[in-house]
Structures are given as structure tokens and as C-alpha cells.
Design a protein around this nucleic acid. Structure first.
Lengths: 367, 367
DNA sequence: CCTGATGCCGTAAACGTTTCCAAGCGGCGG
DNA sequence: CCGCCGCTTGGAAACGTTTACGGCATCAGG
């Protein structure tokens, strides 16, 4: 079931901890000895417990600072049975190299700062190989006493993650499709973002607006398509056959889809692509067809990857708020952690984060 | 000197560890009880110690797997005085949003897999705020018993990182400028990469090759310029005044530098830019000047960011091997860890990782 | 039969911290 | 004077694991 690799290399045991201060580590016991109190009092003083007099507390803290004392987290974890640490997983990225990359890094940074502002530590979980057992992540959580896990844009068919989400471990997932008793999903408002893109094109005078979708089995792709359809319906725009082409979020699929859309009977004057790479591909297709963007064809993407600002004309796109997503994930996870475990599902509905339309040259003639 | 935030929220102590298997955690003691041996034997069996008979070892392992036992890492760390965990820092990324981002994510993934293949765990260190004390990272290392730290593309003026590198903590830095008794630097072969770029342009027939550099106080920028100069000298190419323009690695600076280079007396026919964003900026400048890339002007960049493959014409560039860089960093760190601490500097010279020239449309006429 | 070696295993002491429980002490109302 | 309470403090038991040390077999060589 589980396999173990606890092999301890017989050489190099017990390396001396390289603390800068005095060459050797100072404990709570050393502090107790030097300040003439017991270890219990030192612990209480450093942890801001109420039952210590102000005088001794101050004395102990000063001594601790002076000696460069740092508490031993493993020992604290051991006795407190909590580690103040949460795990982090993201897709190994080899497959989705193009799509998620730039987006992911923003998420990572946002999660990192939000987590440390909440005074938690962050441990990276290994993305398991295809032959690793399903319980790999559960093992890791249990080994390190992790209190919860944040997962970022992970593929929906990861067995290990599915098992983790299905367990009682608190999980917060950004752009993930897993469900579980203590799992909450965080996502951009894909539908509203798509609607805003269509509305923007409508406001510019476009009436024949086509779309390039992502793989429709992925929730974000489906939601963006739904938003597109809703906006079209609301604005009274028809969606002829052939105006909806499915891509795979990568450049080449956008180029191919663009060619198809430009050869359709009633040629669209604008394209909303569910991903920036596909939008850029569509712009290439337009250029190859001798069309000028945005004069002959307006293009709007989704995600605001780095390249969106670098291509010419620069790409109008629906930007996801990476910082807000990261903060929402951490907030949701804290909610799960603070709730009593027996309290059932606190709120299974996903947290939705608004998007922001970034208008650039690909949709605006005056650029 | 140091400040502490060990505040323990008085509510929610001792949350029950949510392990899936049986609802409660199984110890080494439980294993011992159930298999009729002592905890010492169980520990030895699971750790592949020699002093256990094959029969009992197998029995214990099977039982452990059956019960879903996972060793308690904090406890192991406490008694073994090593955590098998290394820290990871990277730049908060707000300032270098454009330059390092896509590159960084590849490094992160590479480091992550290399670290876990070496059976270490990875802990993310917080990027400290400007008012955090200098010893923040040292504190973290000492608190968690981290055995070493890997730093990725960190700014050269980070006081906390400088102090960390200067300490006796083993450090491996990719694209960092810190030095210390147990600190090793890993870097792409910037000079050779630049040389390869110039040679490529020379082989295409170009004789007037200019360059756009990065901020020359950053080592990579200086090294790339040196490579450019060396190649020009070797190939007998003159470098007239005005053929070397300094940028800041961002798009706008490349565009401005491109304009300057295109208006110089003896106009270059090719530009080597020390960063992809600047290269793309130079392409924009050429387009604005009515020049066609690559017919009238060839452009080569550096880094191979995602956008390099998305712009038109696609950008020829010197790709950094993120995987190799990550693996080299982990290997270097392991070298530091295995070396006895008293052995002095094992090898202070930096590890150099070769680059790879990716030829695309911006330098090749037949695209 | 004795001696030493070898293979396997148990006892118990750590590791650094938190926290339960009790105790000392001064004051205060009865 | 007694009992009680509130404020500090200390003693000691955990938490789960590793490992030094010693013991009990069994076995080979003399």
C-alpha cells in the first residue's frame, strides 16, 4: 500500500546546526538557566501567555533576542500536534507548459505572501510520478503534520490529488475540479469575464463575434463559453454554427481555429478566445489572411499572460487577479481550519474572484 | 535583534490529525504492540538497519503498510537533529515582473523534482519585508533545522540573503551574486551563449552586429556583454561607438535602444539583445522604422521566455536550460552537505551550465 | 566444555518544547 | 486566626522517534 524510503545514510549523522550567533544552538533550557527561572516560565514568556509577570517576560525576551534564540519548530510541532504549516502542490507543468506558466507564478507569489502573513509556513509537496501510490500526498500530510493543502491549477485526473481532496484534510484549490468534505474551490469569475469581453466588443460596434474555447471538459473553458453565450443572448447577438471552435489553449490550435473562423460564411468581425495563446494564434491567422488587427478583426483573449503585452498589436484580454485568487485560497483554507472538523461542510460553493478587462491594441482602433 | 511571533492562538489547540485510514494516527508504538516487538526493532526495520532479521523486517513493513503508518517527521527531526529539508527563496517578483518570471517557474519545477529525487523536502521561505530584521532567514533555517538553502534569481541587494550566504549555512544560488564560506553560485554560461549568438549571426553573413545589454552591474548582463565582445574580436568584427546600448531588460528599453541603434551612422544589420523582452522591443522599433525582420535586420535574444515563440517573427534566442540549472543547484548543495563542515571551501568557483541556441524566424530568412 | 564472536532484540535515555497540576505567597474578608 | 483567592512559578509528564548499551541466544573453534 504505502512504501517507505526512510533510509538513513549511515555517514554524516547529526550535522552541527550552523547558527551564526555563537556557533551552537541555544535552547529554552539555556534561557531558563541563564535567567534563573524554569523552562515552563520561559515558554510562557515567549508565547505571550498571560500568567507571566511583565517583568520576567521582558527580561526573558531580551535575553532570547540577545542570544539569538530561535524556537525549535519540530519540537513545538511534536508536542502541540500542530505544525502551523500548510502544503502546496501545483502541476508539474510539463504538459501545460504554455497555458498556466506565467499565471502560475503570480499565484505562487500571492499564496506565499498571504500564507506568511497568516503566520503559517509553506511546504512544497512533490508532484508524484505515475507509479507512485495514490496515498502519496496523504502520507506527506500525515508525516509533516500539515494542517491543510493548497493546490494550484492541477490537472483534473491526478489520482493522488483526488484522494487528498476526498479525505478529511482541509484543501483549497485554485482552478481545480476536486470535491471533498473539507475541500473548497477558488476560481476566477470565468463567466463574467467572458461576458465583459463580449460586451466590450459589442460596445465597439461589433455584432458578429465568434469564440475559440478551451477543452470543454475543463471547468474554466466551459464557464467561459457559457459566459460568451449568455452575453450574446442578452445582447441579441446570434451565434451561428461555426462561430464556436474548440481549441486546446495552445498557440497552434488558436491559429487553426482562427483560419476556420475567417473562412466561415458570415465572417466574424471579432473573436473572443478563451486563452491568450489561442488569441495570439488567431491574430497570426488574421495576418496570414491579409487582415489587419484590430481594423478588420478585433481579438480579445483571457488570462493576461506576459506575452499579451509584448505582441503587436498588444492583446486586449481578461486578466485574472492572481493576488486576489491567492488570498482567497488562503482565506478559505483558514476558514476550514478554524471551523471545527465535525461541523460538516462549512460552505461547499466555490469562492469566485472577479476579473478585470485590460484593453490594449488588439481591440481598439486608436492604438 | 530578533523578534518573535510565537503567539499561539488560545482556541483550536491540538486539532486531530486527519489521516484517512482509520481516523486516528498510528505510531511506531502501535506497530510494536501489534507485532509483538519493541519500538526499537520497528524503527530499525523501517529504516533498513542491518540488525534486524529478514523475517521480522518483512512482517513489520507489511503491517506498517497495512495500517497506513506514516513516520512523524518532526519527531525524527528532533532526535536525529536533521530534517532532510532544504529551504527555497526566490525574489518576490514584484519588481522583476517582466524579466524573470517565466524563467523562474521552470527553475522552480526543476529544483522541486531534483530535490525530491534526492529524498529531501522543500520549505518555502518568506521573502522578508523591508523592515524585517536581517536575520530572518537565519532564524528560519535554525527554527526548522533546514540543512541548506537554494536561492533563485534573487536581487543582489537583499540584506537577509546576504547575511544568510555569509553564514555557515550551505547555500546554492542560481543567478545570485552572494558569496560565503559555504555558498556556491550556479549560472548559465552567459558569455558562451552570447558568443554563440554572435557566431550564428556571423554565419548568416552579418558583419555589423550591435548589442543591447542589461544593467551592467548585474553579473549576467556583464557576462553577456563580455561574450559579445569576445566573439566580435575573434571574428574580426569592429564594435563601433554606439553599437553597445544599455537597457534594463524590459520591453520599453529595448524599443528605445533599437531606435538608437537604427539611427547610428553605420547602421547594424543584426542586433543581439541580452534579454528577450528587449529583443522584442528592438523588433518593434525595426517595424516602426519600416524595416522587415529578418530581411533588413536580424534579432537574437536571450532567455527563451514564453513570448519568444509567440511573437512574429518568432524570436531566435539563447535558451537557458532551466532543468540543468535546477539540477546543478541541488547537486552543488548536496556536495556542500556531504562535505564535512570543517573542510573549508570545497569549491568556490561557480557551476556553469551550458546554453542552447534556439533558431527561429527573427534571424533566419527562410521562415 | 569453555571462550569468544555474531546475530537479533529490548530497555531506556535522549531530542526541545508545551502544559497539567500543584505549590508558594501575599492579601483580604470573615 | 482561618480559609480562600489570585497571581506567579516550578516540577514533571508528555509528544514520537532514534540509538547507545547491554543481554540472550546460537555457533564455531579450541
Amino acid at each position: 500500500m504505502f512504501s517507505f524510503r526512510l533510509v538513513v545514510s549511515p555517514s554524516r549523522r547529526s550535522a552541527p546546526c550552523p547558527l551564526a550567533q555563537n556557533g551552537y544552538v541555544v535552547n529554552i533550557r539555556e534561557l531558563a538557566r541563564r535567567s534563573g527561572v524554569s523552562t515552563a516560565t520561559v515558554s510562557r514568556a515567549l508565547n505571550d501567555r498571560a500568567e507571566v509577570s511583565e517583568a520576567t517576560r521582558e527580561r526573558i525576551r531580551r535575553l532570547a533576542a540577545e542570544l539569538g534564540y530561535a524556537p525549535n519548530e519540530p519540537a513545538r510541532t511534536l508536542v502541540r500536534r500542530r505544525s502551523d504549516t500548510i502544503g502546496l502542490v501545483w502541476d508539474s507543468g510539463q504538459e501545460a507548459q504554455g497555458l498556466h506558466n506565467p499565471f502560475l507564478l503570480g499565484l505562487l507569489s500571492a499564496v506565499r505572501t498571504a500564507v506568511s502573513e497568516a503566520d503559517y509556513h509553506l511546504m512544497l509537496l512533490t508532484t508524484p510520478g505515475p507509479d507512485d501510490p495514490e496515498g502519496t500526498h496523504l502520507q506527506a500530510v500525515s508525516r509533516h503534520n500539515l494542517e491543510g493543502v493548497i493546490m494550484l491549477t492541477t490537472p483534473p485526473d491526478d489520482r493522488c490529488l483526488r484522494m487528498l481532496a476526498a479525505s478529511t484534510v482541509p484543501c483549497a484549490g485554485i482552478d481545480t475540479a476536486f470535491t471533498g468534505p473539507r475541500t473548497v474551490r477558488i476560481s476566477s469569475d470565468n463567466a463574467a469575464g467572458a461576458e465583459a469581453a463580449v460586451e466590450h466588443l459589442y460596445a465597439l460596434g461589433h455584432r458578429r463575434i465568434a469564440t475559440i474555447t478551451g477543452p470543454l471538459h475543463l471547468p474554466p473553458a466551459a464557464e467561459r463559453l457559457a459566459g460568451y453565450r449568455r452575453a450574446c443572448a442578452r445582447l441579441g447577438l446570434g451565434v451561428p454554427d461555426g462561430y464556436v471552435v474548440e481549441g486546446d489553449f495552445f498557440l497552434a490550435s488558436g491559429e487553426a481555429a482562427g483560419r476556420r473562423l475567417l473562412s466561415v460564411a458570415d465572417r466574424p468581425t471579432a473573436i473572443f478566445a478563451a486563452g491568450d495563446q489561442m488569441a495570439i494564434g488567431a491574430m497570426h491567422a488574421a495576418a496570414d489572411a491579409g487582415l489587419s488587427v484590430p481594423r478588420d478583426l478585433a481579438v480579445v483573449g483571457f488570462d493576461d499572460i506576459d506575452a499579451a503585452a509584448l505582441v503587436r498589436p498588444a492583446l486586449t484580454t481578461v486578466a485574472q487577479d492572481q493576488r486576489a485568487l491567492g488570498e482567497a485560497a488562503v482565506a478559505a483554507l483558514r476558514g476550514l481550519l478554524d471551523a471545527e472538523p465535525g461541523a460538516g461542510t462549512p460552505s461547499a460553493e466555490p469562492r469566485i474572484v472577479p476579473t478585470r478587462l485590460v484593453i490594449r491594441g488588439s481591440s481598439r482602433s486608436g492604438a
